[in-house]
Each structure stands twice: as C-alpha cells, then as structure tokens.
Design a protein around this nucleic acid. Structure first.
Lengths: 107, 107
DNA sequence: CGTGTAAGGAATTCTGACACG
DNA sequence: CGTGTAAGGAATTCTGACACG
C-alpha cells in the first residue's frame, strides 16, 4: 500500500551525507532542528541520523527559505498539514470500520 | 514497477551504521568488500557508503557464513544468480520488442 | 581463510559561543 | 532571525600489518 520495507523512514544517514544530498550546511541543518522543523534520531554516542524523508523535508525547507519564508512560518505550515492528514486518516479509519460492520458498498 | 525513487539503491549509509544494522563488525564488512561480495561507493574523502540493498546483501552473506559457506562460494553463487537475471532481462527485452512490432498477443 | 586487534593519522560530529545584521 | 566561524574534545573511519588457526 505505502512503501515496501520503509527504507524511506529508516534514520540511518549522517549529517555530512545529508549536507551533500541537500546542499545545506551542517549549521543550517542543525538550526532547522533547533527550530523544530526536522527530527533526527541519535546514535548511541549522540550522532544525528536522518531518513530519506528527512532529506526531502529539508529540501522543501531549503526551497521555502529561498523564497524568504521564515522558519516559524514553515513550522506553522507543517503543523497545519500534519493536522489535516490526521483528520484524513481518522475519516479513513472510520469508513473502514463501517465497511467492516455493514459490508462493502460502492457509493 | 520496481521501487519509487530508488532509496534502496542510494549509497548513503556509513560503515558504522551498517555494522549496527547487520550485526557484523566493520572488519568483516571491509573484508567482504575485499572478497568482492559487496561494493560500497566512496565519499570524496574516502569513506565507504552503502545502500539498503547492500545491507540486505550483507545480511544474506552473514547467514551463509554462519552455515559455514566460504566467501569464495558465496561469490560464485552471486555471479551465477547475476548471470541468470541478465538472461531473464534479455528475454523480457526481446519479448517487448516483438510485441512492439507485431502487436500484443496472449499466448 | 576469516576475523581480531593495536597503531597512527585524517576526517567527522558535537556543543556552546561570539559575530553580523 | 539565520548563518558563519573558530575552539576543543570525542567518536569515526581508513590503511597496512601482525596474530591465530
């Protein structure tokens, strides 16, 4: 349905590689974390680990920043989008339950 | 058909992370490269980079090694499988060409 | 053959801070 | 606010080699 084994979400990429992949400096990447735009995991000894999703997210952020959008705005948009998706998911879950009880039907 | 953006094949994972992911020591991982079982890329400054495919490959290798299979044998199996897949791909390409010229037909 | 280890050096990453604007 | 930079330390990675079996 979504992806296979979720390679896209495994947090395995170090900040140096993310920097190459995104064209952002490590400084920028760390700062966007400070501003809660990105949430890497940490290795046992404290090194940041990113997923491909994070890389894509950072590229989006970089584009918005180029347009002059401030990190605060970007965060607001992110939160809005997240809430929207949660509502969508909830509706889908509900629909699934209804179908399970009353049978599948086209509408 | 295959995967989306080929996250699975992007070589972005450092050897330390691969070690965690596979349970192999870095020594083992480097040795399997020496034996031509695995082919990481290198960062500009020479650090090895692996893909998720490589990680899976390494897990397969680890399993075979536990069964006592030698790296040489593993390499032979790999080469055999690779040739097999190339033949398959060639057949499919050919079939595609034939269909393109003489029309699609069920058999 | 396959793996461990100590060795030395180079590159990576981390944090907290000062700077500029 | 967003980013650069120098600072110092800790962790990572690399290679070539010796060891054992």
């Amino acid at each position: 349905m979504t992806d296979n084994p979720s390679y896209k979400d495994r947090k395995v990429i170090t900040i140096g590689v993310v920097s190459e992949l995104t064209g952002l400096t490590e400084r920028q990447i760390r700062y966007y974390e400070e501003r809660k735009l990105i949430f890497p995991e940490r290795s046992p000894k404290g090194n940041r680990k990113y997923s491909f999703m994070d890389v894509e997210q950072l590229i989006d952020i970089a584009n918005k920043r180029e347009e002059g959008v401030q990190t605060y705005e970007i965060r607001q948009e992110m939160l809005k989008k997240r809430r929207k998706e949660e509502r969508k998911k909830r509706r889908e879950l509900l629909r699934g339950e209804i179908n399970a009880r009353f049978g599948i039907q086209k509408d």
